[in-house]
Design a binder for these strands. Structure first.
Lengths: 209, 209
DNA sequence: AATTAATATTTCCTATAGGAAACTTGCGGA
DNA sequence: TCCGCAAGTTTCCTATAGGAAATATTAATT
């Protein structure tokens, strides 16, 4: 791989050196898939039928002997009903999934960086949950290319914790939200947040799956 | 398989009735990536440096001559700052419902009194929604009889906006939450909040239905 | 323990993704 | 018009993912 030199963006593969620790390292994927499969009491054979991938392939993926194709990932997620973002979310540390209670201390959520926003996940093992809560720093940016709209299944609720933001949505005029304002919307409608405060804004976000 | 007693898991099996036949529509991806790259005024060369993938590879991916590896997708999204769900969610947005967006101004939520707490609903028409968000004032009380536990279907997320509270739950020791702390739990487990700050505490609550 | 049935892993082979470099296309300037 | 450069595409080759079947492992039953 050509080594970047001066890039600001974290490239996933070098992530190992993203030193303040944990980020989604690329091949935790196998473990996660396996735990999802097991959580649903599926054998490789059954998973194979559901996904259309060979038993052997599934085995290799789970044991991280190969890195699946994009197509394969799609088949997996489609067949097993996994929501893709789950796969990119930092893996749960403790293996156990069945905790009924899950406390996240202020500032201790798992980071989930993207260029535009910086997420801090407020729950573990979201694959088992109906909602995904995270706190998000919306960068103060003049960055006007809203091509980073997001659009996905489900509904979203957001509450401005500090600062203020403009919310751009697909079918509406942009709306300005100040601290304490909140909004509920259909996430299939394209949406995008921009901070309008000179400093960054903090937003609480809860998404259904 | 029959173990539904703990958490309602996403029922994988139903989702994926495998009439096997159809393909997972692997190929919108290229176009999408191309438009993202162009929107950022990147040449293939630059994108190559950012992502660590060869020019030629990028070209082939964009023109849908090959289906990228999962690793390649990761490099792409990391390098270009794309949010992965974008790539998977088809742009078609379906029917435009009339209320896709629902803004609630700070302090303007509808009051929703119950015996124990005082709620301020943060969304309208909650019967249509998958989540119910509300802000809640937890009274500073010494009130010790926690017999007003609540227990109901669904899952809950809560975030302490101000003050601090003790959360009593059925199967665990009470946990103390300060401002900024949050918690996710199965609402069928009995739960109850008590403010421990001398003034009232404010809690954001989101519940599934 | 021994046998079998079920599940998971490994092997071997083919299909295909990815990289380097050759080739093509498009475009601006003398 | 021609040249030259830059962006994109194609070719050719190597590395690796995916499938079928063999092998190994685990679990259940007698």
């Amino acid at each position: 791989m050509s080594d970047d030199s001066t890039l600001s963006k974290p490239s996933v593969l070098e992530v190992a050196r993203q030193d303040d620790g944990e980020f989604v390292e690329p091949l935790k994927l196998g473990k996660r898939l396996k735990s999802i499969r097991l959580a649903n009491n599926l054998t490789l054979e059954e998973a194979s039928r559901l996904t259309g991938l060979a038993r052997s392939t599934l085995s290799k993926i789970e044991n991280e002997l190969i890195s699946p194709t994009f197509q394969a990932v799609q088949k997996l997620t489609a067949g097993l009903g996994i929501d893709i973002p789950q796969l990119f979310v930092p893996p749960e540390v403790g293996v156990q999934a069945n905790s009924r209670r899950d406390v996240t201390r202020a500032g201790e959520g798992k980071p989930h960086p993207t260029t535009t926003y910086e997420h801090e996940l407020l729950a573990n093992d979201i694959s088992q949950k109906k909602m995904v809560p995270f706190k998000c720093t919306v960068r103060a940016r003049s960055f006007e290319d809203f091509d980073d709209w997001v659009r996905h299944e489900g509904e979203e609720f957001l509450l401005v914790l500090s600062g203020s933001v403009d919310v751009y949505t697909e079918y509406y005029e942009p709306v300005h939200l100040s601290e304490g304002d909140s909004m509920y919307y259909d996430a299939r409608m394209g949406h995008c947040l921009v901070s309008t405060s000179e400093s960054d804004a903090m937003v609480l976000w809860v998404t259904t799956r």
